[in-house]
Nucleic acid binder design. Structure first.
Lengths: 339, 339
DNA sequence: CTGTTAGCGCCTTCAC
DNA sequence: GTGAAGGCGCTAACAG
């Protein structure tokens, strides 16, 4: 193999500082950790020597000794997805506030890769955030049991495991969206579904099914789509001959991609077709036309996740189920059907 | 109802496996690292015991022993910025391909916070990626010297330091954009500038200044703006009485925010006003109207950064200056001025 | 207050 | 082919 030679940065060790300063390693350690019981003069001297030697304590050694890494891991199905990016953003900020760093892993939408990634990332961190895991419930329960401190986002609490869950009531969101559309007069709707392995997609479909059962006069079709801009863009082919007057996209991104295509083919929104999204990403408001959607507080979700993680790390009681209820934001992309 | 099981945190150590398997720690270590010199039967047995004990080697201990963490750090000015998210995404994927994990730090646009974050993250990683650092050149040189293996994105190579730099020729990009607009007939332009500490913003302004010098008949105004959707949205107030026929936004996000406002106030793009962005983010194509912009290959930049990092970690020669030249993507948001 | 003594969990020369 | 011993750099008991 090629020789993996690492260029080690010439760093002074605690022993060097101790020797030069004429004290013991323990004292240096105390000074570096601001333990007050050290003679101020000696402390100052040690600090000066450390500075002069360009000494930086090894966090690896510190972690090994303390048994704590001050790092948490986060596994997402797709780092390119704005939804997960926003959660990462808020989680990262919250964790940083308590002195923790975040390690990210991208499962690339592979349910099979997840367990390995989770365990792997756990080896370098104190706790793990599983964001919208794609793996099945049994596998998930198994992984959660093995991984220790963790929190799951976008998935219901798993039976038999106490891991806290941060989720969104997607079914209720879909219901609110449907109420809005039906109130507008729509009777034939179409849902562009998301990734088949996504629990939040299933939740949306459950909401859909329930609604249909309660409103026999409605017709709601489903077309497999995806979660990206291009998925939405390509959906037009399947939608155009369907005859629905309103389209519910899996999320805002899909809705925007879809509307991009509609614009090209000359379909007016909402004049010819109503389009709604889900998530209320920052961009939704600036879409053309501004997108009707359901708010999902990604910022709060990241914070909530961190809170549950921190409580576990500190041995405090946790909340097993935190659920956010999305709210309707009616904007211009939805209107009464024509005729 | 649901049976909540307390998640066990007890981890088996290498000694446990050794004892149970009736071998030495050295042998377990060899087996875990797939060193061939172990008797296959013993190896299988050790593996079985490890599996049964749910043994997972401690990466912290491993790192300390090996002197390598197999982790790299990335510092960005703002994790909410799609540009940096895309770079993080591609960097993460590339690094993962070689078995490295990525630690992220968000400097929250604070130049002062950067040096500390960089050094801090370096204590837990083998190398660091500084993405669009806001700190001044002197400070940057100092930090790079102290940090060891690193690469800088979106900034010219720093004098006196050999750290590789991955950048974009923003000045050339602006020139191309201006050529396009002037070719369309525009004579009075307006630039919505980005964060003042951003080197890429300065590069754009340099390109602007150079162009103006070469085209005395043109008028190009600059309005301080920012880098977010809202910054673009709010810019209309300052723009509306300026009289420019074309607006160059700092980036696509600003352009989209700006166009969102234009839509509200009834200004037609490109009929009443031409708007162009920069970066060609995925969304640009789906904007309404589709945005004329300059491509910036964020995906390639992340990969290029990883390549330079890996070369440093392996002691191979590196390339000090990698620069990508953006290309014009003329879409519908730009057209000849009216009259 | 400060130094000494043990590890934290793993890897890696050496001998056998 | 395998085991024993030492060390990676730091912190945490204990003494003194």
């Amino acid at each position: 193999m090629t020789d993996d030679v690492v260029t080690p940065i010439e760093t002074a060790r605690i022993g060097d500082v101790a020797r030069v300063a004429g004290v013991s390693k323990a004292t240096v350690s105390r000074v570096m950790n601001s333990i007050r019981s050290v003679n101020p003069e000696i402390a100052a001297h040690v600090r000066a020597v450390a500075e002069q030697l360009n000494y930086v304590p090894s966090d690896t050694a510190r972690s090994l000794s303390l048994g704590v890494t001050k790092t948490i891991g986060m596994i997402v199905p797709d780092l390119a997805n704005p939804m997960f990016q926003q959660i990462l953003h808020s989680l990262n900020r919250a964790a940083a506030g308590d002195g923790y760093q975040v390690l990210v892993a991208d499962a690339q939408e592979s349910a099979e890769a997840e367990p390995g990634l989770v365990l792997g990332i756990r080896r370098r961190s104190d706790a793990v955030v599983l964001c919208a895991p794609r793996m099945g419930p049994d596998r998930l329960a198994e992984v959660l049991l093995a991984v220790g401190p963790a929190v799951v986002i976008n998935r219901q609490p798993v039976a038999g495991v106490s891991t806290p869950s941060i989720s969104v009531d997607y079914a209720a969101g879909i219901t609110a969206l449907l109420d809005h559309l039906v109130g507008l007069g729509h009777r034939h709707l179409l849902f562009l579904s998301g990734p088949s392995q996504s629990a939040s997609n299933r939740a949306r479909q459950d909401g859909l099914a329930e609604f249909v059962a309660a409103h026999p006069d409605l017709r709601i079709d489903t077309v497999p789509c995806g979660s990206g801009l291009d998925d939405g863009y390509r959906a037009w082919e399947a939608v155009k001959e369907n005859g629905a007057t309103a389209v519910l996209a899996f999320n805002d991104i899909v809705a925007i991609g879809f509307m991009g295509r509609l614009r090209e083919v000359g379909v007016n929104v909402p004049g010819d077709l109503t389009v709604v999204g889900f998530d209320d990403i920052d961009l939704a408001r600036f879409a053309s036309p501004p997108l009707t959607t359901m708010t999902v507080p990604q910022g709060l979700m990241g914070e909530a996740a961190w809170l549950q993680l921190l409580h576990q790390l500190e041995g405090k009681p946790t909340q097993r189920d935190t659920v956010f209820t999305p709210e309707l934001v009616a904007r211009e992309s939805s209107a009464a059907p024509r005729g």
